[in-house]
Simulated scan of single mutants.
Amino acid sequence: MATGTVKWYNPTKGYGFIEPANGGKDVFVHASAVEVSSLGSLNEGQKISYEVERDARSGKESAGRLQAAE
């Protein structure tokens, strides 16, 4: 699993971005991934682990399987 820091997340809009710990482009995170995780919500600066998943229809990547990072 990759780790990163929540750059920003807006629950009203239902999405945000994670800055990967190893550098590279920010990873999109959708509210649906937050809802199925045990986190409940995301906060700016929060350290999390995630897996990059590719949507079968659109081909776009996003963060999934979110967990609190140690």
Rank of each mutant, 00 (worst) to 15 (best):
D55G: 05
I48V: 15
T5Q: 13
L66W: 03
V52N: 06
H30Q: 13
A31K: 13
V52A: 05
R54Y: 00
L66R: 02
A68D: 06
G45S: 10
Q46I: 07
E53Y: 06
A31L: 10
G45H: 05
K47L: 11
L42C: 10
L66Y: 03
T5P: 01
Y50D: 01
Y15A: 03
G16F: 03
V6H: 02
Q46E: 15
D55M: 07
R57G: 06
L66K: 01
S49H: 04
R57F: 08
Q67D: 09
E70D: 14
A2P: 04
V27M: 12
E19S: 14
G14R: 02
L42Y: 03
A69H: 08
M1F: 11
Y15P: 01
E53D: 11
S49F: 04
A31M: 10
N22M: 01
G64I: 02
A33K: 02
S38F: 00
K25S: 15
E44Q: 15
A2Y: 13
K13F: 09
V29I: 12
E44Y: 00
V29C: 07
S41F: 07
H30V: 05
L39F: 10
E51H: 05
A68L: 15
P20Q: 05
G40E: 09
T3C: 09
E51C: 00
G14E: 05
E44R: 12
R54I: 15
S41R: 14
Y15M: 07
A56E: 15
R65K: 15
G23E: 07
S37T: 08
N10A: 08
S49A: 14
V52G: 04
A68V: 12
N43E: 14
A56L: 11
G59D: 09
P11F: 06
V52W: 05
G24D: 08
S58I: 06
